[in-house]
Simulated scan of single mutants.
Amino acid sequence: MDYSTSQTVGLSRPQKGLDFWNSIAPVLGLFFLAPLTAEYLIGYLSMTFAEMHMGLLLLAPTYGGAAIIIRESARRTGRGWPTIILLSLAFGIFMAGLIDHSLFDPSYQITELWHDMPNPTYIPALGISYLDALYFVLGHVIWSISAPIAIIETFVPRSRTAPWLGNLGLAIISLLYILASSILCWGIAIDDQFFPSALQMAGTAIVVMALIALAFSVRLEERPFAAIRLPKPWVVGTAAFMLLSLPNIIETACEMLGIPSMFMIDWPGFIINILTVGLLAALTWRWSQSRDWSASHTLSLAGGALLTRAWIAFLLVPFDEAMFYDELVQRTVFLLGVVMLLLLAAWKIRAEKKRYEAWV
């Protein structure tokens, strides 16, 4: 059983005297961690560290603000991870469809790594590429929202399922998010000279609203735990790492063996990605039904996702010698940062467990 659950069930507000650590600190942590895992960790943005700091002025309110709003919306209404995941999915579609327009922008439908060939999974009638849509939306669900929330909640076990902000704080975060996402949307539209059609925008809005409605129809209710064999946390983390990495492992292995790997950007690649993510989702849902599912399992699951993002970034290091070493240093710093963050979170869980055992 998760020892921290017994301390947080029924808790609606952080305990007095712990306000900073249990509310303000995790809000700030999530505010800045979400953009790092969403945009910087993967390494496709060629930016110096100074430019990254400046970029946070826009990306932190966009990604961090969204993560905070989603988490607060779920926790304030007594809902848990099913609601967070569905709201994350709604955010992913909203972000890709109505903010950065990556779902519909033709400039995203050319696979430059494959000699500027048209994207094989592009559907002209809908104006989207199924594979790109999968990458964009799932990227937001896993790395922009869910993983950062899971990591930060680990550090505050006594308010892990409680709201962190009051109405004023949430209103400020919401205003920052609206302002930042509006600036981002306008800037991208001007740079790319593209804006989705009215039909595309309407369709996206309908899907987003449907997902939000579904998210708030799900309640975190008491239910009997399943009598299943739950693997150790490190096994859960390894499963997440291997399944999320598998498409890239297949593509890299094909290239090393001299086997054409173009099928990975075609429908077979789309199917492989769907199967790997679907299997991880099914395993996670099954394992989480056990009464022995703990904060360590949640941390391992999120950690496996972050480490996947960190190692894939090394595949994107440019071949240009002038940029190679700078980019390599950045990737290494972010990888070490992820490792340190996970070690600190694991230490926090262990310390809290000892404190709880001494208390009981």
Results as ranks from 00 to 15, higher is better:
M242K: 00
I228A: 01
S6H: 13
L335D: 07
M201T: 08
S296N: 02
G303R: 10
A302T: 02
G269R: 01
R291V: 13
A60K: 02
W186P: 03
S73H: 09
L244C: 03
S182P: 00
A150P: 00
I259F: 14
T121P: 04
Y108P: 04
S12R: 14
L28E: 09
E222L: 14
F31H: 10
F104I: 02
L246C: 06
A74T: 08
G304A: 13
W359A: 06
G64W: 03
L341V: 11
I123E: 12
S6V: 08
I123F: 15
T252F: 10
H140I: 15
T332E: 04
G278M: 07
S261T: 11
F94N: 10
P61F: 13
P233N: 09
T276P: 00
M1I: 06
E251D: 10
I68Q: 07
K348I: 06
V156A: 01
Y122A: 03
Y63I: 08
A213R: 09
A50Y: 02
G278P: 14
F94S: 14
C185M: 15
A96P: 02
Y325M: 12
G97A: 06
V360C: 04
L336A: 14
A205S: 15
D100M: 09
Y3F: 14
G17F: 09
L131T: 00
T111A: 06
N273I: 04
S296D: 08
L220M: 00
D100E: 14
F91E: 02
G237E: 01
A322I: 11
M54W: 11
A322Q: 15
K354Q: 15
W164T: 03
L57T: 04
G29L: 08
L184P: 01
I84Q: 01
E39S: 11
D320F: 04
L220F: 06
L343N: 07
F319D: 15
P148A: 12
I274K: 10
R13F: 09
S300I: 11
I84M: 05
I173P: 02
W359E: 03
A180P: 15
S107C: 13
I228T: 11
W164S: 05
W164A: 10
Y177S: 03
A345E: 12
R223P: 03
D132C: 01
P318C: 14
I206G: 03
L211A: 11
K232P: 00
G303T: 08
I24D: 05
P247Q: 00
H101A: 03
A305Y: 03
A60D: 01
M242P: 04
F32M: 10
F194V: 11
A310C: 05
S294G: 12
N167D: 10
T83P: 01
C254F: 14
W164V: 07
W293S: 03
L243R: 00
Y40C: 02
L103H: 04
F49A: 12
P231C: 07
P268T: 00
V333W: 07
L126N: 00
S107M: 11
G258E: 05
T5Q: 08
K354V: 08
I212N: 05
T276Y: 01
P148Q: 08
A96V: 11
F225L: 08
M256D: 05
P120H: 12
C254L: 10
L199T: 15
G237S: 08
I206D: 09
A346W: 00
I183M: 12
G187W: 10
L342D: 09
L280I: 02
G139D: 02
G92M: 01
A351W: 00
D192E: 09
